[in-house]
Design a binder for these strands. Structure first.
Length: 110
RNA sequence: UCAGUGAAUCGGACCGCUGCGCUUCUUUGGCGUUUGUCAGGGGGGUGAGGAAAGUCCGGGCUCUAUGAAAGGACGGUGCCAGAGAAAUUCUGGGCACAGUGAUGUGACGGCCAGUGCAACAGAAAGCAAACCGCCGAUGGUCCCUUUGGGGACACAGGUAAGGGUGAAACGGUGUGGUAAGAGCGCACCGCUGCAGGGGUAACCCGCGCAGGCACGGUAAACCCCACCGAGAGCAAGGGCAAAUAGGAACAACCGCGGGAUAAUCAGGCCCAAAGGCCCCCUUUCAGGUCCGUUGUUCGGGUAGCCCGCACGAGGAGGUCAGCAAUGGCCUUCCCAGAUGAAUAGCGGUCUCGUGGCUCCUGCGGCCAUAGACAGAACCCGGCUUAUAGAUUCACUGAAAAG
RNA sequence: GGGCCUGUAGUUCAGCGGUUAGAACGCGCCGCUCAUAACGGCGUUGUCGGGGGUUCGAAUCCCUCCGGGCCCA
């Protein structure tokens, strides 16, 4: 599992990827021909100060390790929202699985 | 007990499983003659703060650069002594102000070097000055007269005691004095200067002597005085190996002159143009470098990776010196090094508060809940700002009791 | 991480330490018009980003905090 780092890649995802919104976060998904699962994390100033943003990223990274590691090689971006800080982890976990099922289901339909 | 002041410390602790960054040891497999290199596994160690923050000061470190002397400009600092690498730093002391007090706050040199400013109000705002008021002794005009003088007017003029204005009006009280007044005289208080005394000093005392005595405010107004000061910043700066591109470095020789750069604008992946340049300015002295020719050697920046980068004005404990800041000595420890940036998830135990419920109203029982400000980014010393709550010590005021 | 700039009516900006902080546009009301616009008249709008200090007096000088913006081999 690799981490997305370059700003240009994030901008590219913003343009081309499919998006699904949950209360705690936003998932962007683009099935590219990659060897590994590639994940990017975003926590903007809307989330809070440095402490809150780091906390949000930690939780997102943990989610990615639990869930995305088992998925197909593709490109994902997780964007934190304010409720990422307060919602119980179990809820976030469920939401991510649901979001991925919806995104991949849509893909098959198209 | 209540109210308060100052200082210091902490700012959850522990356990299990699954995970993360760095580091170290070990091991498996591939490639390779070896040094190694790529991919993976396992064990150990370690892992945010008192402010890591704001970037307000000061350094270390790095690059630019040429050193010295004199003068100037610009910026900063400003009671005294001590501490400290230094500081818009700290400690102690002095002075001023605030508070009943413990204490707190203070850019706290100089307006008798010069210049400026003070709206409105007020007569007057810095040479003093007469609006109301008081007086009118003296002079003037008039009246009366017992020829000594008396009275009226408020014209000249005198007067800073009173009123009113203002942030600010040239000492205060009393008494003498006077036409009315006034440091005009005197007494006491205050003030200024000096002798003398205390203190390292700032400064304090000043009962003795001298002076009748105002010297107004503002320098976070220009300024004067004293002292200090290159610029940029780890995105500093250095290294590695390809592609594009055709420039760069070094050495020798010739020449021996000149002192207009900075900034701005436009275009572009670049290395162009120009011929000069030497870091606030001027002068003096001494010096360096570039531009030319020839020869030799080979690239550099940007993107990526590595170094810089964590042993330091370091932490902890003890002891000695000092009122203290702090310093000396001894022992001991190695304590984050990321770069879309490492601490998460689940469960359990305890404690501090907080909230709720309950009754037997007790410093009860039960339930819930780690809950403030906040995240290292080259590193240190300060300052400032944010901060739920807890603990300790010293002191002050009030009330009550002994 | 580091370096800088800036904050005044609703908006864009003025404002040598001195009365009650101005201008333009906007906004409101009235007039003109059958009506709207234009035009004319009258009027409205500020914790001068917050706090503290210097001064008799601060938007202005000084300190500090906050917000917004820009730059980087």
């Amino acid at each position: 599992m690799k981490t997305l780092r370059k700003r240009s890649d994030f901008v590219d995802m913003q343009k081309n990827a499919q998006t699904f919104v949950t209360p705690g976060f936003i998932v962007q998904y683009a099935p590219k021909d990659q060897q590994d699962v590639v994940v990017g994390y975003t926590a903007s100033r809307k989330v809070g100060g440095a402490v809150q943003r780091n906390f949000a990223k930690r939780r997102m990274r943990h989610l990615a390790r639990l869930v995305l590691a088992q998925h197909d090689p593709a490109c994902y971006v997780l964007v934190a929202r304010r409720d990422m800080l307060t919602l119980p982890f179990e809820r976030l976990h469920r939401d991510l699985q649901w979001a991925l099922r919806r995104l991949k289901g849509e893909k098959k339909d198209v």
